[in-house]
């Protein structure tokens, strides 16, 4: 059954003369989920987001956002909340007044207090934005994106400038939005954060798509690293041989054997084989690859 998509693009491309910012991007962002949008600096994330928001025109390609054509942004933007390329406000106006400007532009009303409360800046809402820390501006930008109860929230690096507690709050907020049926499309270079909050992932490198799909599928694509430490150091060499027989890339380091890229049953097999060979294991751990490790693996070797 085809997935219900909030954003879909076909061959989306943006060129600046000879330079390709985004190349033939076929994007599929499922409705009602958190989709992480990851890529190194200059990968084309912000350019893609700007195209989705009608700020820049694609050189070629088509697409739909919330079922409306990409080349008619006015038809869908009233249902979209966005934070693009960092928080942007009038520094002399208060946080509340800044939100009032945006609410009047959108032709909506009555959402300011809720947005301020959700993002936790209601106690400073009447202070000039110029006096806010970067983290507070980031929260205010999130509040601005949430005005008008959007169906799709597009956030470009929303955790920038936030302390760990703030990042956790943002993560909770994004999760809550998705649980309420809002589609969240969030770009970040803080890969660990996306790993915790995303259901779906889009990886971009040099303007081209590297991976898109379920986060769990991506994590499953890369096998875990098994680390086994024998009780007696004299067994290290024998244990390394046994691990090599199980496949994967084996390394001996700090009195332990690590096998990367081994299959899912490898740890049990290694334990059994070591026991059969009379080797007692003092430690046997299985470390799943982090999203960051997978990301660098994909972007560095160009795998798709």
């Amino acid at each position: 059954m085809p997935m219900d998509l909030a954003v879909r693009t076909v061959g989306l491309e943006k060129r600046y003369g000879e330079r390709v910012a985004v190349e033939a991007l076929d994007l599929a962002v499922p409705t009602g989920r958190v989709t992480g949008f990851v890529g190194p600096n200059g990968a084309g994330k912000t350019t893609t987001i700007r195209m989705l928001l009608g700020l820049i025109r694609p050189t070629s390609g088509t697409g739909e956002v919330l079922g409306r054509p990409l080349d008619r942004p006015a038809a869908y933007l009233e249902r979209v909340g966005a934070l693009v390329d960092g928080p942007a406000f009038y520094p002399r106006l208060s946080g509340r007044a800044n939100l009032a400007v945006l609410e009047r532009l959108a032709g909506t009303r009555g959402g300011i207090e809720r947005a301020l409360e959700l993002t936790g800046i209601d106690d400073r809402a009447d202070d000039p934005v110029g006096s806010y820390s970067l983290g507070m501006r980031q929260r205010l930008a999130l509040a601005a994106a949430l005005l008008g109860d959007p169906e799709l929230v597009v956030l470009d690096e929303p955790a920038n400038g936030l302390d760990p507690a703030g990042i956790r709050e943002i993560r909770t907020l994004l999760r809550r939005l998705a649980d309420d049926g809002v589609t969240v499309f969030v770009s970040s270079h803080q890969l660990a954060e996306l790993e915790h909050v995303s259901d779906h992932l889009v990886l971009l490198r040099a303007g081209a798509l590297v991976y898109q799909g379920l986060l769990s599928s991506l994590l499953a694509r890369r096998a875990a690293t098994i680390t086994a430490r024998p009780e007696h150091a004299a067994d290290l060499e024998a244990l390394a041989r046994i691990a090599s027989d199980g496949g994967g890339h084996v390394r001996v380091r700090d009195g332990a054997v690590s096998a990367a890229g081994a299959g899912p049953a490898a740890s049990a097999r290694l334990n059994r084989s070591a026991h059969a060979a009379g080797i007692t294991l003092a430690e046997l751990t299985v470390a799943a690859p982090t999203l960051e490790e997978i990301f660098f693996g994909l972007t560095e070797d160009g795998a798709r």
Partner: peptide
């Protein structure tokens, strides 16, 4: 100032009819 502060982005997203804006 709209360009300097970047508020032109949020304004154009909230009111995408640029001529009217």
């Amino acid at each position: 100032g709209e360009y300097r502060f970047g508020t032109i982005r949020s304004s154009a997203v909230r009111l995408p009819f640029r001529g009217r804006l």
